[in-house]
Every structure is written in C-alpha cells, then in structure tokens.
Amino acid sequence: MQISNVAVVREEHNISMSVVIEINDLTKVYGDNLEALKGINLEIRRGEIFALLGPNGAGKTTLIGIICGIVNPSSGSARVNGFDVQKDYLKSRAVIGYVPQELTTETFESVMDTVKYSRGLFGKKPDAAHIEKVLRALSLWDRKDSSIMSLSGGMKRRVLIAKALSHEPEILFLDEPTAGVDVELRKEMWGVVRNLRDNGVTIFLTTHYIEEAEQMADRVGVIDQGQLVLVEDKDSLMRKLGSKQLTLDLHKSLKSIPKTVARKGLTLTNNGTQLVYSYDTKAERTGITALLNALSKAKIKFRDLSTSQSSLEDIFISLVEKKK
C-alpha cells in the first residue's frame, strides 16, 4: 500500500516537473581574478534528483553557496520558487535545506537540542513527532541525548542531514553528502535521499563519486573550471554517450584475429581467450550480427557472451579530458 502511494506521488511529480531553481548567467570572482563560476545557466526541476559532478575546485560548492545564501554572486541571478536569492532571500531560503560538505556541527549540545534549534531557525513550530521521525530515519534516535562531540564522523554527517530535514525543506542541497562515509552508511544515505525524492523533495547534490550520481540522479550536470560542460538526463546521457562492449569467451584461444573477422572496435584480450567488440548503441547498425556471422564462417566458437555499458565515470572522464 505504502509503495503504491509512493509510486503515485512520483508519477504526479514526473508529470508536473516545473522549474524550481533558475540560474541565469551566474558568475563568481574571488579576489581579483579567481573566476569560480563563469556564466552558469541551469534549471532544476521540481521533484528531481540532480547530481552536479566535477573535480575538486570546479565550482560546485560555490554554486550551491550562492543559491543557499552563503556566497554573494558577482553577477547574474538565481531564483528559487521564483524568488530571487538576494532580493527575496527570506522567501527563497524558507524552502531550502542545506547540508554542507564539512562536518560543521556544534560540539557540546545534544543531538536533539541542535536539531530543534535548526527547526526554530526556519520559523517552524516545534514538532516532536517530526523530529522523532527524522532522527529515527537517520538511525539517530538512540543517540538523541548524546552530545555531538561524542559521535562518530558518520553520525555527525547524519546529524547535519537531520538538521536540514528538521524544517521540512522542499529543496535539499547536499554538498558531497557521503564524502568520507563508509560504504554501508553511504548506501543507507542513498536510501534516505531516494525516500525524500519519493515524497516530493527536490534534491540537488554535488559529488565526485560517480557511482553516487549513477545510482541516484535523474539528471546529471558536469561542471569543470567554473563552466557547465553538460546537463542531461542521466539515462539518455548514458545512452547517448555510452558505448557498449560485447565480450565473447572463446572456446579455443587465438594468436591473432583472422582477417575475415577483423573490424573496427574488435580486440583480442585475455591471452587470446576473449574477443571484445565495442559498438555504438546509437548507431543505426551495431555490427553485432555481421560479427557473429563472420565468426561462424571462420569456425571460431565461443562458450559465453556478455555485454557491458560505459559507466558514468567513463563519460565524465571523457568529457573533462575533451575540454582540456
């Protein structure tokens, strides 16, 4: 029952994916000449998970900082729910939750006190039931009375998320949410984020873990040296830019590829026991049938075959390399 409700909510959000964040010609220059952002234009749709990928120093945190109110832009504009983040900052910030990259938590306060404080800062009425729900979802309920300094790094990270969720944001910014977090906790956090998205929260996350974007994002943006290199639906991006590999495990090893079989994209690997054929999924003809026919004519038998697709990491590296 719960699952079907969630599915309905998701579907409704897919249907009405209005723009919730609009960024126009946004620039940021630190000091005299350090251009952190160079004319960013971007729209974030309501209810989506948008992952912004980029190497260190690409401008990810600066971009989030401007939208959330921590960084002043040099020029351009950013609007949240139609409200300018500088002129109408009270309205734009009211719907935003922000989880910073650094573990910037209070020290001596208890988990409960600090989360209640965050809710109060956003002008929300105290709501013990909501706070409990958030703390339970993040496995913090048992530590609600512990002082923050007694928590592990992973738990502090959860406290930061709990603080951001305490005031029920419509848009959640996660700046490198799983940096320095172990694999188990990372997957747990992905679950929390997906659940939020299923409940209609728009998620904007920055990461340099490609796997994170690949697992969670609806759309992916790639930023490098202050410029957006690409913004695309994740699936279509992977379809468009990703090539596939067909791997054939040969019955008998080959010394070289026979001339009648040789073609572009075909390589002999693994001491001559595997043939790997790279093909473009977007091409009109992949060449798989022709390859299999050629192998049959050449009487080359194979025991098994498998296909694999380029990961987002491959795509990301190729984009950044191309730009350089």
């Binding site: 921590i70 009211a94 922000y98 650094e102 965050s118 800062l121 603080k163």
Partner: peptide
C-alpha cells in the same frame, strides 16, 4: 570559528 554559522546564514532570517 567552527563553521556552524552557515546555518544562520542559510535560514530565512533578516
């Protein structure tokens, strides 16, 4: 100093 000021700066407070 500890960085928690971000929360006040990102909250809807004048």
């Amino acid at each position: 100093f500890i960085g928690t000021i971000y929360e006040v700066l990102t909250a809807p407070i004048s």
